[in-house]
Write a protein that binds this DNA or RNA. Structure first.
Lengths: 359, 359
DNA sequence: ATAAAAACTGTGTACGTGCACAGTTTTGAA
DNA sequence: TTCAAAACTGTGCACGTACACAGTTTTTAT
């Protein structure tokens, strides 16, 4: 069963070179003649060499600097969960020489994001984990990373026209599609639907919210559902203004029976409905943040979709380490599952997800 | 950030003994005076020593033999998924000296199970992963393992009055409860419900099926649902006889609108219904086996509950390694999540679960 | 043709643990 | 008191890799 593993030394012998040369080939360090390299590569292929990761870890002398760039977050929020997942991986690889830092920007201020991206580019680091909000700015950022040959990994969502080492995100379109399905299941009448989407300053780039909206509409179309759909404005930066906005909306539209919140702020609408004592409107949201869970438990949210952010962070960091340190092949596109959570399942779900990471 | 890790050597110095003595204390190998042990233990506590896992792996000389005892299985079945998970862990720890063997019994023949258990007890091994069907026999088996001080881990379900290192299973009661909830959601009329449970030879011990039934009934009770419920007999050992059994049942009970299959053989009922061209009966099943998935995709099963068997195997094996090799603290009770899968979500679910393990 | 530079190659060490073995002290029986 | 056995303790090696450094060969410039 446990046949003797092939070592660098064995490969050196088979290829008729020294261990140092094999090492140079394996790590692509240069200073190897074409003849030697070919000989070594031939043997490597023949024996399917896989380095002993324990020995690699031990012998690694270089310090590896990794940065996490993401929107600002507080405890229990979506991005905090991603961060927690990253820390979990760091804990697992505590015996490897790694330095890690997070650096955050205001997700409602594209200029702050740019500023932070520039700051990162000036920092000496070996890899970046990116939580992107602004498509175009992130593209530019990535192209500069490409130039500097700094690898990067996406969490939360992919960014087009970039070449990340890996991407860990849920399928936002399917998320919206699922929300349509659930909304249709929980609304037992023919009333109208409201869609909540954040008002963002400047041009609204193709982000997760848009994809979710497309998925939501697609479900309704496919099923031939002909409910009237309203867009409900929503102020993410100044939440205290929302009560007035919502009041105005419901004054005009009295026949709304279901609301879909396409970002993680479902609890704001939930609390509004509670405060106005409106009870017959079904609410579907995204992300198992602490306030969302509270609203779910109270019954003011009917269902939440979980995107497994902790696992995203965990896996992103792990992929990066495998790529950087262990030179292992990495799967680029990784779609995380969407969890449907209701009042009845939230407790078992929470308990479980506290302990569990997907891998 | 990366402060110098404390080594065995450092502890030896701090405790005023040699590295060998520290090693003996850490691994509980005896041959240490009370005075030395106390000194070392004091330092260990103070510095919160955690051995470098890579060095441990490298230096470990002993071969560790692990056995997996489970019901017989073929490719794509429930127990095969658990096995696949175990193999995944073995792959991850390929650099550790491990030997692994599976040994299976007929889950419908308690005598075969006993015979296999006896065989295991005669084999020299360091730990056992147990997939239990027969409660009482497994208890006896475990007590004998206890005597021989051989640690064991459960997958699929827990066994009372035993002291496993860990247990990885889903909550079968909640599974049944969920099935009740789903059944209630998909049945849009007041027709009756059928429950399928395997006829097992000899005494039917408290297994997962019974727990699921209790959960199912509990949901209906809680919601005050007053549907008539029938028990449908089911021959697991001779499936070709089931057509006649089912024919007889449906002749007598024409008003059944939903069927719950409490084991992984939902596809058998699904195929029966298809063959008789019965279309208006909703079917809920357990486990994402290949034939069950096929029936789900065809639409003859409305929903399946997944128990994450791959993750169970993966985690069980990993816990065992952490316990045996790395002397890490292990969480004993580990409840795996239940996934609700429908025709719409099966593709994304399958693709994902092929790559993903919970951890 | 010769020296210098560049390209290439081999050797040797550190990493921290598990464990074997040799060496030392304590215990206990005669 | 003596000596063997038991209990205890310290030393040193193997594990396979990454990487530094010294040494060797080839190329290039004069």
């Amino acid at each position: 069963m446990q046949q003797k593993r092939i070592r660098i030394k064995d490969i050196a012998r088979l290829a008729g070179v020294s261990a140092g040369t094999v090492d140079r080939v394996v790590h692509n360090r240069g200073n190897v003649s074409a003849k030697s390299r070919e000989a070594v590569e031939k043997v490597l292929k023949e024996v399917n060499y896989r380095p002993n990761i324990h020995m690699s870890s031990i012998s690694l002398k270089k310090m590896c600097h990794i940065l996490f760039v993401s929107p600002k977050f507080s405890a229990g929020e979506y991005w905090d969960s991603i961060y927690t997942g990253i820390l979990r991986t760091l804990d697992e690889f505590e015996n490897i020489r790694l330095s890690f830092k997070k650096i955050t920007y205001d997700q409602y201020d594209v200029y702050d994001c740019k500023r932070i991206y520039d700051k990162v580019l000036k920092t000496k680091c070996n890899a970046v984990i990116i939580g992107s909000i602004f498509q175009k700015e992130t593209q530019d950022f990535c192209h500069q990373l490409d130039e500097k040959e700094i690898p990067y990994v996406f969490v939360d969502s992919n960014v087009e026209n970039t070449s990340p080492v890996a991407c860990f995100s849920s399928d936002h379109y399917t998320c919206g599609y699922l929300m349509g399905k659930i909304m249709n299941a929980v609304m037992h009448d023919n009333r109208e639907i409201g869609i909540l989407q954040a008002m963002r300053i400047g041009n609204e780039s193709a982000n997760s919210t848009i994809l979710r909206k497309n998925g939501f509409n697609a479900y309704l179309d496919e099923c031939g559902i002909k409910r009237k759909i309203h867009r409900i404005p929503f102020n993410a930066t100044e939440p205290e203004q929302n009560n007035d906005i919502f009041d105005a909306f419901f004054n005009e539209n009295g026949n709304v029976g279901g609301i879909v919140v396409l970002n993680s702020r479902g609890h704001i609408m939930a609390n509004y409905l509670s405060s106005r004592n409106i009870k017959n409107i079904k609410l579907i949201g995204v992300d198992l943040t602490i306030p969302n869970i509270a609203a779910l438990k109270k019954g003011s949210i009917s269902a939440l979709i979980g995107q497994n952010p902790k696992s995203q962070g965990f896996l992103a960091m792990r992929s990066l380490i495998e790529y950087l340190i262990f030179k292992l092949p990495i799967k680029v596109d990784n779609i995380m599952p969407l969890d449907i959570v209701t009042k009845e399942t939230i407790d078992i779900y929470s308990e479980f997800k506290d302990l569990v990471y997907l891998q």
